[in-house]
Computed example of a mutant assay.
Amino acid sequence: MTSAFVVGDQFRKKVSDLLEQPDLSLSEELRTQLGDLLEKKGQIILPFSLARKLKQYLQDEGHPFYLYELLEDSSLHLPEFVKPPRNPELVARLEIIKARLANEEYNKMTRNVNNQDMNRNGTLADFGQQVRSAKAVMVTVFNFLVTIIATFACSYIGSQYLFTETTARVISAVIATSVVGLAELYVLVRTMEGEFGEP
């Protein structure tokens, strides 16, 4: 927060003229403070408290110029902001939180990456899974063929009690085999969809 002015040449000149007047009823304290201020080389910083005293004196004595005239080419003195030191405990906690967040982000990015998939030759577990999958497909196809053949045989043999002609028996066996085959295909497709994760 600012508490002083950086005064310019106009302040120097007018205060110097004011201090040189012989009939000046200026208090010793104010005269000394202003004299010390003018003797400084370089940037002159006028505290607000001294500016108030000077303003009060000018008002009391009825001088023809005012304080704002002295400070026309002046500016506010803005002290340099000193950054307070950071609490070491807080810094340590922030580092831990940053590391944890970075680790969570990394795990989120790599959760669907399997290091075994990156191996070109594959592992024994992958080979076993492929063998089991191929075995399941072969058993399903074999089951489908056995069901079709058994349905045809049963229909053909059972139809001899209804039909005497061979043509009628074959047609009835083909119709029964088609119905059972379509039903078996429907069940097979639904099972395969379930294995692949489709609804």
Score class of each variant (00 low, 15 high):
M1Q: 14
T2C: 11
F5Q: 10
V7W: 02
F11T: 04
R12T: 10
K13F: 15
V15F: 03
V15T: 13
D17F: 09
L19D: 05
P22M: 09
S25K: 09
S27I: 02
L30A: 04
Q33W: 00
G42S: 00
Q43G: 06
Q43R: 14
Q43D: 13
I44T: 05
P47Q: 08
S49R: 15
S49K: 15
S49L: 06
L50W: 00
K53T: 04
Y57M: 09
Y57P: 03
Q59R: 15
E61Y: 09
E61N: 10
E69T: 06
L71N: 08
D73M: 05
L76M: 12
L76P: 05
L76E: 08
H77Q: 05
L78F: 15
V82A: 07
P84F: 03
P85Y: 02
N87M: 00
E89I: 11
I96F: 06
A99G: 04
R100P: 02
R100D: 11
L101P: 03
A102T: 04
N103L: 13
N107H: 14
N107R: 15
T110G: 02
N112H: 14
V113D: 05
N114A: 07
N115V: 11
D117R: 08
D117A: 05
R120I: 10
N121T: 05
N121H: 06
N121F: 07
G122S: 04
L124N: 11
D126H: 13
G128R: 14
Q130D: 09
V131Y: 06
R132H: 10
S133L: 08
S133F: 03
K135C: 00
K135I: 00
V137Q: 11
M138Q: 14
V141W: 10
L145I: 05
V146M: 04
V146Y: 03
T147I: 08
I148H: 00
G158L: 07
S159Q: 03
Q160S: 14
L162W: 04
E165S: 15
T166F: 05
R169A: 02
V174I: 15
I175T: 07
V179W: 01
V180G: 02
G181C: 09
E184V: 13
Y186H: 11
Y186S: 10
Y186P: 04
R190K: 12
R190G: 11
T191W: 13
E193N: 07
E193M: 07
E195M: 11
F196Q: 13
